[in-house]
Amino acid sequence: MKRHFRVWRGDSSGGDLEDFDVEVNEGEVVLDVIHRLQATQTPDLACRWNCKAGKCGSCSMEINGMPRLGCMTRMSTFTADETVTITPLRTFPVIRDLVTDVSFNYEKARETPAFAPPAGVAPGEYRMQQVDVERSQEFRKCIECFLCQNTCHVVRDHEENKEAFAGPRFFIRAAELDMHPLDARTDRKQHAQQGQGLGFCNITKCCTEVCPEHIKITDNAIIPMKERVVDRRYDPLVRLGRKIFRRDQLEAAGESVPRATPATAETPSGRRLPESPALGPDGRLDIAELSAPIQGGPSPFGEDITFPLPPERVTYHHPDPS
C-alpha cells in the first residue's frame, strides 16, 4: 500500500519538507520506509542507522514531532491515511537531511570525569553484590541515541544554555558513577551540580518520556542526585565544618562560600540561570510536585498538545546555523 510521507531535506543553509508516496508493507517500521526511499527515489537521502534493532541508538529522528528511533517506530502505530512527517533532531545543527551534528554530546562526555578504580584492588578481586550493581546497570543500558538531550527544553531552542548544561544523558552517567559500588571518587554529586548544570533541570520528565530504553532518568538519576547535592550542600553542620576547615583554602583561592539558595546563580556573563523547583524545609523536593496530576510539571510542548501532531501543524524550521 502506498503511504504519504513528508521528509525534511536540506543542509545547514536551509531546506524544506519534501513529499513522497512510498510503498509500505505489513510489519514495517519508519526506517524501512527511509531505506525504500533511498533505494527507489532518493539515493542520496542522508540518514544514520546501524543495528535496526533499537540497540545502537543511531537512527534518532523526529516523527510527527516526537523524538523517536526510526527502527522502533512501527508503521502500524499510525492510522491508515495518516501522513508521516520526518524531521531531523532539532536541538543539534543539521549536517544534511536527517543527519545532525551531535558532537555536543561527545564534548560533554569528555567533560564528565571517568570511573576511578579503587586503590589497592587488583583486577579479578572486584567484589560487588548484584543488588548494588543493578542501580548503576539501569543507566548503563543507555544506547546514546541522544533523544533525551534533544528533547530537553533546557537546550532545545536554547543554544545559549549548551555550554553550561551537560544534559540528561550525562546526569545518568554521573549518577551511574555515584552509585557504582567501587568508584573511588566521592564528588560525583558536586560535579553534577557545579560542573554539569544539574540545577537547570526542573524535572519535567520529558527525557524519561522519550527514552527508548525506558530508563527512569528523572526519578532514578536526576532526583536522587539533586537531593543528595542538597543534603551535602545545605546541611548546616556540614557547611559549618567546611567553613572551619577550609577557610584558608577558600580565602586563598578568592572563592565565595557556596550559596544558600539553589541554582539562582548567575553565569559569568551575568545572565540568570533557570531555577530549580523550591525545596521543602527538609531540604528535599516537594512531594506534591511528584504526585501532581501532570507528572513532573509543565511539558515544554504545552499542556494542550497531544502527540502525534497532525501534519499541517508540524511547521519545522531548523534554527540558523549561527
Binding site: 571517568a114 583486577p123 579479578g124 572486584y126 560487588m128 550493581v133 548503563r140
Partner: peptide, 24 residues
C-alpha cells in the same frame, strides 16, 4: 580471556554478579 575481562572491571564495567560478589 579471564585477565582481559577482569581488566574491563578496572575500566568501570559492571557485569552481573554471583552470590559471593564475583562475575556471574
Amino acid at each position: 580471556a579471564p585477565e582481559r575481562i577482569w581488566e574491563l572491571e578496572t575500566y568501570g564495567a559492571l557485569f552481573d554478579r554471583t552470590k559471593d560478589g564475583k562475575i556471574s
